[in-house]
Design a protein around this nucleic acid. Structure first.
Lengths: 224, 224
DNA sequence: GGCGAGATCAATGCATGCATTAATCAATTC
DNA sequence: GAATTGATTAATGCATGCATTGATCTCGCC
């Protein structure tokens, strides 16, 4: 998203590296890891790793437990409900704002591109491709909303969703309904109808939340 | 909010101390401060101060500028609009959830207490007292909503509002309208009417946002 | 007199070392 | 045999030191 500002510090690389390890599942949810172990793994000293760990703790990805190492946090269905409720509230507001701003079809090219990419991915039965395009759609929607703080908060929440999706992506039907929802939201924004855009997006996220929470509960309580 | 867990680390004390300095205005918005200077001021070494600074940066209170020290962030009217929009979306959702949960009048004692304290403060023309009670009302409302993540995000946003209020608190009428709003929201929650509670709260925050942004613009662009 | 290049300065970012202290293990006693 | 207390271990939290490198200041040249 943001270009490399300064030389790129080791702490920043540590943060990115740890995020990657967490999202790839190499640091499993619920597992403990010593700072020194992580530092050795990344080929750094403890200091930048410690800084990265503190940031990731504040981001809700892990927890520092004073003598027991850092624990990668697990996400319960209840957590997922919380995350989705935050997303519902903020994204639907963003959708309203985007519709009010009345971007022409020009300003919505990226949003539309994400739509067609999702369709294409579904046709190919490419779940990862669909997920990536879905992320782009939601990211662009929020960007169009014109509220930086909303962008940042949503990005954090999406991190959590991403982890749950690792598990669920292959355990359900291809999300055709979801795509119809997206297209309807896009149309409302293009027609500059804020009320409709907000209402449709709210319904979309509520549906997704209910599906995901039900699925998670059907499995075991604690998952990625 | 949460009790002291472990012995309380120096880094945590540094974070709290820096927050206090910022909110008291001793570290002025827009001012720069070297890490070593802050460390000396707090009687600590640079390490825990640096950790605290990194956390506060992520909380949006300051910015680390590699060779120029940490800069205490200023808040523009546009920033305030963003903050209030986030608060509007999340708190009104919390109000809905609180109404749905149908807490009896028993479960709402703290919310009601905040109300009466706000009334009393207005009668005394005690602006700081009113502000403190207002914080309690909003904090309790969000707690009743039953979403930890919303609580945390709202707390961050309230930090920003607090800084702007330092400037504006004495520059406007006593907020009687605001209190009527609060009472109406309380009543809707007590009557377990989610739609009403959400609608009323949304209107309340929108009003507060418009007043504050207008006031800030009437002064100068960048304020606390 | 103004502008540019080079040297000096200093703040950060990182590594390292140490003290603190929680957790584990063992030994002794009941 | 179990439990409690003491000793040992080791991970964290903090302090300190150093290298890197951006910023500033000076000197020289145009």
């Amino acid at each position: 998203m943001s270009a490399a500002r300064h030389p790129v510090s080791s702490a920043q690389r540590a943060e990115q590296a740890l995020r990657a390890l967490i999202f790839d599942g190499e640091l499993a949810p619920g597992s403990d890891h010593l700072e020194s172990e992580l530092a050795a793994r990344l080929g750094l000293s403890r200091t930048p790793v410690r800084e990265a760990v503190l940031l990731l703790e504040q981001q809700g990805l892990l927890e520092v437990r004073p003598r027991k190492g850092v624990r990668i946090l697990q996400i319960s269905p209840e957590d997922m409900r919380e995350v989705y409720d935050v997303l519902t509230a903020l994204e639907s507001m963003a959708a309203e704002a985007a519709a009010e701003a009345d971007h022409g079809a020009d300003g919505l090219v990226r949003l539309h591109a994400a739509l067609t990419q999702m369709d294409a991915a579904i046709a190919r039965d490419d779940r990862k491709g669909w997920a990536a395009a879905d992320d782009r759609f939601h990211g662009e929607l929020v960007r169009l909303g014109g509220n930086r703080r909303v962008e940042e908060i949503v990005a954090r929440m999406v991190d959590q969703v991403r982890r749950a999706r690792m598990v669920t992506l292959y355990m359900r039907e291809m999300p055709r309904q979801s795509n119809a929802d997206h297209r309807a939201v896009y149309e409302a924004i293009r027609k500059a109808d804020p009320e409709e855009a907000g209402r449709l997006h709210r319904r979309h996220r509520a549906r997704a939340r209910d599906e995901l929470v039900a699925l998670l509960k059907r499995l075991g309580l604690k998952s990625v």
